[in-house]
């Protein structure tokens, strides 16, 4: 029975999940930083310092030191959280919208439409997404919104499969037949009866996809495909790598962006697994 009403008890259960709440805490901390951080930071993240300020270790003026161009690491880190969250969430929105639409259309229509949409999905599933993203990013040019588009367009296939499977299961339930018996049209049944029942799954999946999107953004930026006008953690790692910061012992330049990526991705993943466990009672521990 618990499976039938995920909307009612899911958030109460989530609050009891310690790991899930830890993940939520991490994500909220980064979100708060992204929202108010840049206003509080005393330095502009893109302002070059004087020659004397290049690659300085943490000090009272620069809490996390400076990078190879004399820029304040802490300021870049704070600005980077904004980029990561913005790109991660926007790309996820595109992935989820596309994946849900394809999954619902395929599962609901069935037949030929299902076959065509699922073969398309298969193509996107087996395509090596990293080279695909690189090619697309190179073709489209590396503005922030292109990065969002590239990540969104390559990440929807898994969601489409998941949503389709759920639609196939719900479509056979009697309340769908009953809705049809009351004279509801197909579009109405999908919007009023099918979608609300698939939504919990889409929601839990969204959180996990966000983690992947954040990681993708970092990867693209690290490989030099990022938007150079927007500081991001991936770009910091890119410059740190190029300037040999790790080998020269300038760990204050390498570790903070790395740890931030880890923290944010971990936050989303912990939340995602907590929801997964709630929506999939087989994974739920007893007692």
């Amino acid at each position: 029975m618990g499976r039938d009403e995920p909307g009612t008890g899911a958030f109460a259960l989530f609050r009891r999940s310690r790991l899930g709440m830890a993940g939520l805490g991490l994500v909220l901390a980064f979100a708060a930083t992204a929202l108010v951080g840049p206003a509080l930071a005393p330095y502009e993240p893109l302002d070059f310092g004087t020659a004397a300020e290049v690659l300085r270790p943490p000090s009272r003026e620069h809490l996390l030191g400076t990078d190879d161009m004399g820029r304040d690491v802490a300021a870049a880190l704070v600005a980077g959280s904004r980029t990561s969250l913005l790109v991660g969430l926007s790309a996820t929105l595109i992935s989820m919208a596309l994946g849900s639409a394809v999954g619902i259309a395929a599962g609901w229509r069935g037949g030929l439409a299902d076959s065509i949409l699922m073969r398309l999905t298969d193509v996107f599933l087996v395509l090596p997404w990293m080279p695909l993203m690189l090619v697309l990013a190179a073709l489209l040019g590396s503005s922030l919104w292109n990065i969002v588009l590239v990540i969104g367009l390559t990440g929807w296939a898994g969601t489409a499969r998941l949503v389709r499977a759920q639609v196939l299961a719900i479509k056979e339930r009697q309340f769908i037949e009953r809705a049809r018996a009351t004279g509801a049209s197909g579009a109405r049944i999908v919007l009023r009866h099918l979608l609300p029942n698939v939504f919990p799954l889409i929601f839990a999946n969204t959180i996990l996809v966000t983690a992947v999107s954040v990681l993708s953004e970092t990867t693209l930026s690290f490989l030099g495909m990022g938007d150079s006008t927007r500081p991001s953690w991936g770009m910091m790692l890119h410059f740190a790598f190029e300037s040999g910061a790790a080998t020269s012992g300038a760990l204050w330049f390498v570790l903070p962006p790395g740890l931030c990526v880890l923290g944010l991705v971990l936050g989303f993943t912990l939340m995602g697994y907590a929801f997964d466990e709630i929506l999939n009672p087989k994974l739920r521990r007893r007692g």
């Binding site: 995920p6 339930r173 009697q174 009953r178 049809r180 009351t182």
Partner: peptide, 19 residues
């Protein structure tokens, strides 16, 4: 449908939308 002829389904726990 429903205006002229309606149905009481077999297992009504499944005939109602759970959400």
């Amino acid at each position: 449908r429903w205006k002229e002829a309606s149905v009481v389904f077999q297992g009504s726990m499944n005939a109602l939308n759970p959400v």
